[in-house]
């Protein structure tokens, strides 16, 4: 087994644990590179099937390429697709910095969606290397009735014995990609020939390293036009992955506040 085989095996194990131990489960699909790998790993785990709904909570501010991609692969991958909408920005906490306030729409959209479609477990494609508060996450991360993350008092998690017992009214976020890095995602995408949205590849000296809403996501300087070039770029870059995500840089604790409230 090489490095990617080991990562894959661990993710498959996580998927299978959640599917067996939790009642109703579903997966969040942001259409980005990570969540495409996540769907791929689910098909590995369940031998070609994705035996639960795949959900997109839509800010309606994504890039058009993302919507095209979504509609194509719902069919090709035979997904049971569910869609939710986000509330307008006016309803968000005005004390948040502007970009974080915009990102908070997604949290509210997800809460509303979960209220209408109750789940016991939600797969989310976050990784520890993306952001320092995500580095503190558990693989099975329990959420209160409001979806809040109690990061000050997380349960222990060891020996791949995950928390699968919860009081009624709560749910758990499951993170099958938590142990992957950005580099791993691209190496695996290449090895498995997983489709990705074209926005990741450089045009006119710019590319998107991370995809969010149009208005709060900026491209980074890059000449990487192919998977191999992206991998080569990551080997030498000193720029962080989320540097193009405005909300991460507005205030020291902006991201922590979003996550505590239920943001991915």
């Amino acid at each position: 087994m090489d490095h990617l085989d080991r990562l894959e095996s661990q993710s498959v194990y996580i998927f299978r644990e959640a599917f067996n131990r939790l009642g109703r489960v579903g997966m969040l699909w942001s259409l980005g590179k990570d969540s495409n790998v996540m769907i791929w790993l689910a098909r590995k785990a369940f031998l070609g099937h994705v035996p639960f709904p795949v959900m997109h909570v839509d800010t309606e501010k994504k890039f058009p390429e993302m919507y095209e991609f979504r509609d194509r692969y719902i069919k090709e991958w035979n997904l049971n697709f569910l869609s939710g909408k986000c509330p307008p920005i006016e309803e968000m906490d005005p004390s948040l910095p502007p970009a974080a306030r915009s990102a908070a729409r997604k949290t509210e959209g997800l809460k509303n969606f979960l209220a209408a479609n109750p789940f016991d477990g939600i797969f989310a494609g976050i990784r520890r290397d993306e952001q320092a508060t995500r580095a503190k996450e558990r693989v099975f991360s329990p959420r209160g009735a409001t979806g809040a993350w109690n990061f000050r008092d997380q349960p222990p998690e060891f020996w791949d014995q995950f928390n699968t017992d919860f009081p009624p009214g709560t749910h758990v976020r499951i993170h099958p990609l938590l142990h992957w890095t950005e580099m791993d995602i691209w190496l695996y995408t290449k090895r498995e020939k997983i489709p990705v949205i074209d926005l990741y590849f450089a045009k006119n000296g710019k590319r998107y390293r991370s995809l969010g809403d149009k208005d709060i996501t900026n491209p980074v300087d890059s000449n990487a036009e192919t998977l191999d070039e992206i991998i080569e770029e990551l080997r030498t870059t000193r720029v962080s992955e989320r540097s193009g995500r405005a909300m991460d840089h507005e205030a020291e604790d902006a991201f922590e506040r979003l996550r505590a409230d239920g943001y991915m």
């Binding site: 349960p155 222990p156 998690e157 060891f158 020996w159 014995q161 928390n163 017992d165 919860f166 009081p167």
Partner: peptide, 11 residues
């Protein structure tokens, strides 16, 4: 591991 109520309480 041992689970006490809803919590993993020991190994």
């Amino acid at each position: 591991v041992l689970v006490d109520g809803f919590d993993i309480a020991g190994g």
